[in-house]
Design a protein around this nucleic acid. Structure first.
Length: 356
DNA sequence: CACCCGTGGTG
DNA sequence: TCACCAAGGGT
């Protein structure tokens, strides 16, 4: 089978099995030559970075309902956007999302640029996202290479070179297969194939449109591709988190600095995180331990000792009081939401509520 | 190039 | 329970 025939087989499969998604155009629109909205495509691509489609759907729905255009998003408050992103992870994406939206309005008249070079110059848009938006929204002949494409290529051509050294080779294979007639569909076809058929474990080779030319299938090496280096063990860190409430129900919270872990997100004041953290209460009070919150990040495991106190109406040394009706636990990143869930039943304001 | 940066699902 | 993983980007 020639490379051209592989491309055709892939597009034929996509025409029959493409998944329906909020940012994709339906068959009728597609037949009429309607391109998807670049804003919705860009938003989906940023949300999908290292994130599953299942997790992204509801966030994409919510964002486009609140902010239907890039100009609406550009005009939004930072804190509101960060709160809506809470739970999706990799919070630098949300900060760059706003920077990018504002740059599109300020520098491009509120319309997304339609070339790879102009897109990659925007915040939060790297090689993958620039190619994906150019191909999917503007049907540019860009080769889109993400984790799915790398896996499909490494199997199709049985590439034994370990990652990430194999990347140039995989990119070259992907470039030769790219359809110049339907680049946007081709990009999504390879990614759909990787997500539904050519999966990391237990690939469904029997129903794969590329099963005949696939070298890894021929040699039985599917599950050994791509070759990846072993991961390092995760260190264990400890820390203290302080959940304080006033009698009127206000919560003692802080907005974390933009740099670093959970940057720009709302959270509870705490100690440093390490092997032997130093207790650091953010305000004077009768602090007592309520329990522990365990959370696993990408590169370390964290156990937080959750301290609670019913606070007098004094000025805290760190953080600020947020009125009860202005606070949603859903606006917290997951690690902090776990802290909240451990603490809440131990605070007298909450006990009064549950008792009443 | 190596490391940092979240989270929820899955085998 | 646990290790691995998902449509990567920034530094």
């Amino acid at each position: 089978m020639t490379e051209s025939e592989m491309t055709s087989a892939l597009l034929d499969w996509y025409d029959r099995h493409a998944r329906t998604m909020p940012w994709r155009t339906g068959p009728a629109e597609k037949a009429a030559g309607v391109r998807p909205d670049p804003y919705r495509v860009w938003l989906s691509e940023v949300m999908l970075q290292q994130t599953t489609v299942a997790a992204v759907r509801k966030y994409h729905d919510r964002f486009t309902a609140l902010w239907p255009t890039v100009a609406d998003l550009a005009a939004a408050d930072d804190s509101e956007v960060m709160a809506e992103w809470a739970g999706l992870g990799y919070y630098a994406r949300a900060r760059n999302l706003l920077k990018c939206a504002r740059a599109v309005v300020a520098d491009h008249g509120g319309r997304f640029p339609d070339t790879h070079d102009a897109l990659i110059a925007l915040p939060g848009i790297g090689p993958y996202t620039a190619a994906a938006v150019a191909a999917i929204a503007f049907d540019r002949s860009e080769t889109v290479v993400d984790g799915n494409v790398e896996r499909v290529m490494s199997r199709l051509f049985d590439v034994a070179t370990p990652m990430p050294a194999a990347k140039p080779e995989l990119i070259a294979h992907a470039a030769r297969l790219t359809s110049h007639a339907r680049p946007g569909d081709h990009a999504q076809a390879v990614m759909d194939l990787g997500a539904t058929i050519c999966t990391p474990r237990n690939p469904a080779c029997g129903i794969c449109p590329l099963r005949d030319p696939c070298l890894a299938r021929l040699r039985g090496t599917q599950t050994e591709r791509p070759v990846k280096a072993s991961k390092k063990a995760k260190p264990h860190r400890r820390g203290y988190a302080y959940v304080g409430r006033r009698a009127d129900g206000a919560w003692l919270l802080e907005t974390r600095p933009d740099k670093g872990l959970l940057g720009g997100m709302l959270g509870f004041p705490g100690s440093d995180w390490g092997e032997a953290p130093t207790p650091m209460p953010p305000a004077a009070g009768d602090w007592r331990a309520a329990g522990e919150a365990v959370h696993v990040f990408t590169h370390f495991r964290l156990t937080l000792t959750v301290m609670v106190a019913d606070l007098a109406p004094v000025n805290p040394e760190r953080g600020h009081f947020v009125p009860e009706d202005a606070f949603r636990p859903g606006a917290l990143p997951t690690a902090m939401r776990k802290v909240h869930d451990v603490a809440a039943p131990h605070l007298s304001v909450e006990r009064r509520h549950t008792a009443g």
